[in-house]
Amino acid sequence: MKKKPYPLWLGGIAASVAGLCTHPLDLTKVRMQVAGDKGLLLSMRKTVANEGILGLWGGGTGTLLRQMTYSMMRFAIYDTVKAKIHTDSSPMPVWKLVAAGSVAGSVSAGICNPGEIIMVRMQGDKAKPVEKRYGYRNSIQGLYRMAREEGLATWYKGVGPNVVRGLTMNVFQIGGYDVFKAEIIKNNLLADGPVCHFMASFAAATAAATACAPADVMKSLVMSSQGAGPGVFTLIKDAYANHGVKFFFRGWTPAWIRLQPTTIITFLVLEQLKGGVDRYRKTGGTLM
C-alpha cells in the first residue's frame, strides 16, 4: 500500500523555525553583499551598534513570508515530483532526485520571487544611507509599496538569478540531503535517526553554499537596487572586471555559517514533524 503523503505545510513550518533561528546570519550575509561590509563579526557588531541587538532580526517578517511561501512550496513540489517519477520501492536514483530538486527549486523560486525580494530589501535596508532606505514597516506593507511606487513588475525583479539559485539550492540541499542520508544508511555508517540526519544535512549545506554562491551574490545585488537598474549580465561583467572571480563568492563564509544551522535545523525539525504525523496516524488520526 502506497504511503499517504505528508501535509504540504510541514516544510514551511520547519523552514520558518530554522529561518528565525538563523536570521542574524542571513541578514549579515545580505549586508556584506549589498553594502560591502567587511567581515562577518565586524558587520554584526556594526548592526548591533547602530540598531541594538534586535537589529539582527531586522526584516523578520520578510523571512517568515518567504519561508511560508517559497520553502513550503519547494518541499511540497519536491515530494510530489518524486512520487510521480518513482513509483516502485527500489532506491531512488540520483538523477531522479536531481530532476525533482530542479523542478521544485525553479518553479517555487519563480512563483515566490516577491517574498524573496522583500526579504532581501528589508534585511539590507538599514545598512544603506538614510536617503536610500525603503523603510518598509513589514513584508505585506512592503509588497504593497513596491507595487504602488515601482510597479507590479518589481515583484519579479531579479527573478532570473533567483530561479538559478533556487534550482541549484534545491538540487544540492534537498536532493543532496536525500543522497547523503541514503549513502550513510546504505553503508551502515549510522542508523536512520537524528545523528544521521545531522550529518546528511551538514554535508548538503556545504555543497549547496558553494554551488549557490555566484547566483546568490547576483540575486542580492539586483533585488536590492532601486528602479530598473543595470541588467544581470552588465552586473556580472562589471563585477568581474572590477573585482575578479572572488567577487562571486563574497559573503560565502556567512552564507555557509548560516546555511549549516538553517539546513540542519530544517531537516531535524522536518524529520520530527514527519515522525509526529506517523505516530498520529498510527493512533487512528485522519486529519493529517
Rank of each mutant, 00 (worst) to 15 (best):
S139D: 06
V81P: 03
P230M: 07
Q272V: 05
A127F: 03
S139M: 08
S90A: 15
P5N: 09
G176R: 02
I265Q: 07
S106T: 09
A109F: 13
T262C: 14
L27I: 11
M92V: 15
K82R: 15
A241Q: 13
V17Q: 00
A127P: 03
W57Q: 04
P214N: 08
M169D: 12
T154Y: 14
L56T: 00
G151Y: 04
T266L: 05
G105D: 02
G55I: 05
R250P: 03
L97D: 12
I184A: 12
N187E: 09
R45N: 09
D88Q: 04
A209K: 00
A200E: 01
L97R: 12
S225L: 06
I140A: 15
V17T: 10
D37A: 04
T262Y: 15
A35N: 13
F267C: 00
R165P: 13
A100K: 10
S90C: 05
T47S: 11
L221N: 06
S16L: 13
T87N: 10
D37E: 04
S43G: 06
P91Q: 03
K3S: 15
G19D: 00
L189Y: 15
A213R: 08
A200P: 11
S224F: 11
M146A: 11
L97G: 13
V277I: 14
T61L: 00
C212R: 03
K2Y: 13
S201T: 07
Q173C: 13
K157F: 07
M92S: 04
G124M: 02
G285V: 06
A228F: 08
K219D: 13
V81R: 07
G58H: 09
R121F: 03
A213M: 11
V217Q: 08
L56W: 01
G58L: 07
A49E: 11
G110N: 01
S139T: 05
G55V: 06
Q226R: 15
A200M: 05
